[in-house]
């Protein structure tokens, strides 16, 4: 490409081609984008809606059952919910705008988001661990405080353990898939970043 004419030819060839443009009409793209945008907003809304639902449910239980056990249970539920909402809110901070308007800054932002996903995984396990700890503490407490209520609780133990096993398995599966995806994405982004920085 030793002449500008050659380069101009390439520009013409390039701009006349419609590489892989599937010809989707603008209206269809707009509809897809609007649908995806709605889904993202719904996901964000769902987090807070679940939090609000749990809070309302606990409030209703506390209003209809004034027992100490309900109070302890309700308090724990609210504490866990608050903790989860606080975490999701904190975890999003600084993940929207890159530090600078450069490609490397965008890559750093993408890497930061991967770190955020990693933190979410850790938090999910922490929350589950705290809930299990609460249950472990809760059983002896009920034994001493409400001996008459202990039997129904013990009868429910197999179901509770079954649910717990199910949750642990689901979380383990999710963790395995998410961790491998995060690792692959991180490797790719890190390689691209290194390539960009090396050529600066």
């Amino acid at each position: 490409m030793n002449t500008n004419a050659e380069w101009t030819d390439l520009v013409t060839v390039w701009q006349q081609s419609a590489h892989h443009d599937d010809g989707t009409e603008a209206g269809a793209i707009r509809r897809r984008v609007a649908a995806q945008s709605r889904r993202m907003s719904l996901m964000l809304f769902a987090e807070y809606a679940i939090g609000a639902f749990i809070t309302c449910f606990v409030a209703w239980k506390l209003a209809t059952d004034k027992g100490l056990d309900t109070f302890v249970w309700g308090f724990a539920m609210l504490w866990f919910t608050g903790m989860a909402l606080q975490f999701t809110s904190d975890n999003r901070k600084g993940q929207w705008v890159p530090a600078a308007e450069s490609t490397v800054a965008y890559l750093d932002l993408a890497l930061g988001r991967l770190q955020r996903r990693q933190r979410s995984l850790r938090f999910a396990w922490l929350l589950l661990g705290l809930q299990v700890l609460f249950l472990v503490a809760w059983y002896p407490a009920t034994w001493f405080l409400w001996p008459q209520a202990t039997w129904p609780l013990i009868e429910r133990t197999p179901a509770l353990l079954g649910w717990l096993a199910l949750v642990i398995m689901a979380l383990a599966g999710w963790t395995a898939v998410a961790r491998s995806r995060i690792a692959a994405e991180r490797a790719d982004l890190t390689r691209i970043r290194a390539e960009l920085v090396a050529d600066e």
């Binding site: 490609t103 965008y106 890559l107 932002l109 993408a110 991967l114 692959a184 994405e185 991180r186 790719d188 982004l189 691209i192």
Partner: peptide, 10 residues
């Protein structure tokens, strides 16, 4: 451009 670069990981 920025989307294309960060899309590579996914």
């Amino acid at each position: 451009h920025n989307r294309a670069i960060t899309h590579a990981g996914r």
